[in-house]
Amino acid sequence: MRLVFDRPQSLADVQTHYCPGCTHGIIHRLIAEAIDELDVADRTIGVAPVGCAVLAYNYFNLDFQEAAHGRAPAVATGIKRALPDRVVFTYQGDGDLASIGTAEIIHAANRGEAITVVYVNNTVYGMTGGQMAPTTLPGQKTTTSPYGRDTDLAGYPIRVAEMLSTLVAPQYIARVAVNSAPNIQKAKRAIKKAFEIQVNDNGFALVEVLSTCPTNWGLTPEKSLRWLEENMIPYYPLGDFKVPKEVE
């Protein structure tokens, strides 16, 4: 008998605290697969955010540092500059990266820090109870936008992948989604590429992953996947926004 499907070595064999139907687990798995396939687990250091993924260090068989809210790119910069031959990645949500940590992500990207950033966008602050995030869609109801996001009051959702792709230094910036099997396959390829860019080309790479939050959206896991497809993807188009020069 041949084993055709197993838990990636880099993914810890533990129960997670994520809500049922949440897609963080899928994204964790894709990262672990990429690290295993590149055979870099023994020299990879992850940086956990503040947000739903605050305990991410428990779910990987990797050395990890937990950063203050929004500061993961600065912490990752410190690690990478101290140990340039290691592989360093951050795992950050949209409140962490696109709100309180905007300065850190923009400048880490702008310096072309050789780190990989996995940016999980689910349009809400999940851990604190579903408040409005910088990524909340116009009209979307959250616990701090009970009448729907009013763009006159709160502005428009930030498209991080597009914004960062205007910078010169980043080598690879893409947006993917984990709402369907084909999209998960594409997400896997993008995340792996984002690690390859660091390992092979010493460059900055960011993958924005559209993810669901059934609990705070008030939807079933299945309806959440559909809501992502119908509402998020039109505003946050999928694709590569910046690719290494030789590919262009």
Binding site: A68, V75, G78, I79
Partner: peptide, 8 residues
Amino acid sequence: NMVYGAAG
């Protein structure tokens, strides 16, 4: 926070 990362 860079200090944090490098010290760690």
